[in-house]
Design a protein around this nucleic acid. Sequence first.
DNA 1: TATTGTTATACTCTATAACTATA
DNA 2: TATAGTTATAGAGTATAACAATA
Lengths: 158, 158
Amino acid sequence: MDGKTEAGRIAFLLSQVGAHVASQYVERIGALGLKPTEARVLREIAAADGLSQQALGERLAVYPSRLVGLIDALEKLGLVERRDRPGDRRSYALCLTDAGWKRLEGIEHSVNEQANELCRDLDPSQRVILNELLDRIARGAGLSPGIHPEFRKSVDGS
Amino acid sequence: MDGKTEAGRIAFLLSQVGAHVASQYVERIGALGLKPTEARVLREIAAADGLSQQALGERLAVYPSRLVGLIDALEKLGLVERRDRPGDRRSYALCLTDAGWKRLEGIEHSVNEQANELCRDLDPSQRVILNELLDRIARGAGLSPGIHPEFRKSVDGS
DNA sequence: TATTGTTATACTCTATAACTATA
DNA sequence: TATAGTTATAGAGTATAACAATA
């Protein structure tokens, strides 16, 4: 749908550009040898190094059983370690390895690059304005700053 | 990632708001008794009433085998018909029923409503500016006006 | 022989329940 | 008995190949 009203055009563009940003992100993550979910786990461990799989599951709103294979894969890639915990032999402390921290840096670098490419046609003052308007929409929609509502379902074109 | 640079913040907001628009869309479509894929098929048939499943598959970039169940479901809902084609007994002509056209109207109405809610905090001049800036980004990213790059894969938070 | 729609198969991603080993 | 992690199972959603009817 083209969206005849101004609001309609804006909603379409937001969805169109948002989808494009997301798919570019998937490509970039893939180029770094990871799936988006793995990148997300990496980031979450970095934010709370040493946490348990249970705790990680809660943070990601994901079933613990799902983390098993996920952590297995990241461990096989040498990016994450399951360290024994002194007091409790049931749970592990999840930590990034040096390679894990490096990979995470790579992700951040690539994401920055993507952002710069995306905005390359906007001059500084336009960027400020766009930021402001998007922020207003995000706040109006009840979105919390810095918290991303994961794409959990795939969506066909609007 | 918070995105320290202005470009980073914009990219994050675009992805965040885009995801939100998409998930609201899924909800609205669901409230109308459809899955996003089904809504997409409905829209595509409306745009080229009477086309074959092969042709539809090409337009949607989807394997013909996948359409079988999809059309089955829409036929069971009474929204689409497989009409016999006079000249060729191999292929069907896909048409929307009256109920199908009505449902499509409902979708468009709901999408308009969503767009208005999304922009409710922006006055007319702000809408014009936002539209312009988004359009500039979309064009710079090589996105064609009115063509939505389907979300084919689910993406975890950036 | 080529084309249309269909069935069958497999692979990924995810939700859920049952199990084990510690505590 | 409760908790952490694991295994097993099932259900979507989708890609691919083989097949039957028609051209």
